[in-house]
Design a protein around this nucleic acid. Structure first.
Lengths: 387, 387
DNA sequence: ACCTAAAATGAATGCGCTTACAGTCGTATG
DNA sequence: CATACGACTGTAAGCGCATTCATTTTAGGT
């Protein structure tokens, strides 16, 4: 029994300042002459303890270097005060090291950074801390399980975690799925869910090109990997072309292996080498590709937007710094992080068994020079996306 | 006693799939006909359990939706498998909202993002997750204490946490201080410590201006807030001027209120309005200021670098995207995060009482167009900083 | 088949804290 | 003056898991 230590511990205050074992409530209690319950109350509910007693306890705690154990606290109170985020580790460390050497630090502004910032901020507002972990494989000792075991609820970037594992975990705590439509719908249909209006964004952007700029020969450059988000963009493009009376094929005009600047440059070379009439607009699945294309076009001596229009998707910072500035669709990543926390909090505070929520975040079409829009900064923007 | 639940719980498997209480080792043990010790072993040390038994336990765990409680685990084993980071919350949410509306998303690449990424990655390599929290005030229930109570060790960005509080906490677990020299040295001299070679970086950059470009009338634009890092930069500048035979005053030629682009613009206006000979080089304490200055100079019809040279500090992505590209000193933030984790791990795995370590990370002087350096990309760079 | 060492498992204890529940006083009421 | 009541504080019972030690199996050897 712990109580035995009451009898003999701490011969004197002087001694106890040099404890080698980390101090606990028992030590603080002993030192300040109260019970452990009172020590606990000083931290959990200060007002329930007489001022005089409280001060005495706090003084002892300070003297001993006492910090409440989050683990013990969490165990006893069945909640941790921590929210979590699992995201994939996109970055190949080697590639990135090279990139940094080569000053390609744009890669620096990652998707996940924004979400992390958004979540951290929102979590803090609610008094929570944030636990983050990029996931690797599954298995009983997977990072996801580790995160899940340490938080009150967490968010997962789509396609990060085996759905089966998520299914199990989500039975015992709130989970929010980020981006990507709920897959299959078979298992995960009871998760809350946040996605971005990819379809609407690309649709509106394409409509703008066709109707406002009179373009009739667009080409769409997509990706080989079939992420639901990217697919939704293409469908938005298709739909806009159809309703705009522009004839295009059911498939992207080109699929690149990765969505990088380098691939964007290659894409331009490939497209321009094809016979037939040159496209008057290059619609890229993301900004990285589009920026690469800008470089390639310049090298080929083609002017943007006079000779050919270029658009991207994502709204990364770089998109407005290139020349010409890139017309694109901005994704509200920061907001996605905040929204995720709000959903989790909602589940945590009552609405445990409410119907699963699905939030569609609106995107913003940002019209800049690369599509021919000039300085009509404010006039040329609008938000799109149903709720 | 918990054991009582053995008797009546779980009338049938069918039922048990709908437990409302979250399952524990007891449930899994009961369901798979073993003791809780064995369940625990399956997760902690799988090889110590017969394959057949292990499978049975895992099957039961899956069926019940069991996830080990990180809290209980941490409490029993006295370690969490989590590292922490405390950083200040620079961003004024309102200001940022505006910034985003105005497409000023450069603010997006924050100091802390890089460190977080670096730490997360390194932590993962060692099997740890990362807990992050931007700190506010102190007090017994401060976020720092909360973080400290939940991790095995953590890093703190300088000036984030009251040193007194840190002093107490660092008695019981490893803490690494990031950036900023160890203050006072009175209390925190037993913490590990990582800083950046601010002095050396600014020194080398200034030397380059003086010796390689023959500039003789530099002006230094510093900040009103006296952060140790920024001060070190100024001292590096001073030292280089001295040894280069260039006469300058002991104080920055100008101190701005905040280190923002807007202030950078104002700084140029102020400096050019002064009587006397115009400086031939403007040395700014960070990139933001320098970029603002670039705009202002252009407006004033002055050419960079022909009429006046401009340099920054930090190496933010924006610095290489502006025209002319900015000569600056790159800080290895990502690496700082990684290094922090390495130090923590080292403390955690044995070297508990070793002498406190102080790491000085080297910086890189990046010579670009704004100082007159041309395309001599590779030749024009070097690393500086002692270890 | 019998004995022994090694492997697998179980029983029991405690990690540090929260939280009913049960006192203990001091003081306002009847 | 006895009773009640409120404000504090102490007692005790876990929270879910890791782990030591004892016990049971199993494999190995002869």
């Amino acid at each position: 029994m712990r109580l035995q230590s009451y009898a003999c511990a701490y011969p004197s205050l002087r001694e106890s300042l040099f404890v080698s074992t980390t101090p606990t409530v028992y030590d603080v209690a002993q030192q300040s002459g109260v019970s452990i319950a009172t020590v606990s109350r000083v931290y959990r509910n200060p007002d329930s303890v007489r001022v005089e007693t409280r001060e005495r306890v706090l003084a002892a705690a300070r003297a001993l270097g006492y910090v409440p154990s989050g683990n013990a606290r969490g165990l006893a109170s069945r909640s941790t005060g921590v929210l979590g985020l699992c995201f994939p580790d996109y970055s190949d460390p080697d590639a990135e090291a090279e990139a940094i050497e080569a000053e390609e630090e744009d890669a620096a502004t990652l998707y996940s950074d924004q979400i992390i910032r958004g979540m951290e901020r929102a979590a803090r507002r609610h008094g929570y801390a944030l636990l983050i972990a990029a996931s690797l494989e599954g298995g009983p000792e997977s990072l996801v399980a580790k995160v899940a075991g340490r938080v009150d609820g967490f968010a997962v970037l789509a396609r990060t975690v085996p759905t089966q594992e998520l299914e199990v975990i989500s039975r015992r705590q709130p989970v929010v799925m980020l981006a990507g439509p709920r897959e299959g719908t078979d298992h995960l249909d009871h998760l809350d869910h946040i996605e971005v209006a990819n379809f609407d964004g690309q649709h509106e952007l394409t409509r703008h090109l066709i109707e406002d700029h009179g373009l009739r020969r667009p080409a769409y450059i997509g990706s080989a990997e079939e992420s639901p988000d990217v697919e939704a963009r293409f469908r938005g493009y298709l739909a806009a072309c159809r309703s705009g009376g522009v004839q295009v094929s059911d498939e992207p005009d080109l699929r690149v292996a990765m969505m990088t600047q380098a691939e964007g440059q290659r894409a331009v070379d490939v497209l321009l080498a094809r016979e037939g009439e040159r496209p008057d607009a290059l619609v890229f699945a993301n900004d990285q590709l589009a920026v690469g294309a800008l470089h390639a076009l310049q090298q080929q001596g083609l002017r943007v937007p006079e000779d050919v229009v270029v658009t991207g998707f994502d709204g990364i910072p770089l998109s407005r710094l290139v020349r010409p500035a890139l017309t694109t669709v901005r994704q509200p990543m920061l907001r996605m992080g905040e929204e995720a926390v709000e959903l989790l909090i909602k589940r945590l505070t009552g609405a445990r068994d409410a119907e699963p929520v699905s939030v569609m975040l609106p995107v913003t079409v940002v019209r800049r020079a690369s599509c021919g829009c000039g300085r009509e900064k404010d006039a040329g923007r609008g938000r799109h996306g149903r709720h």
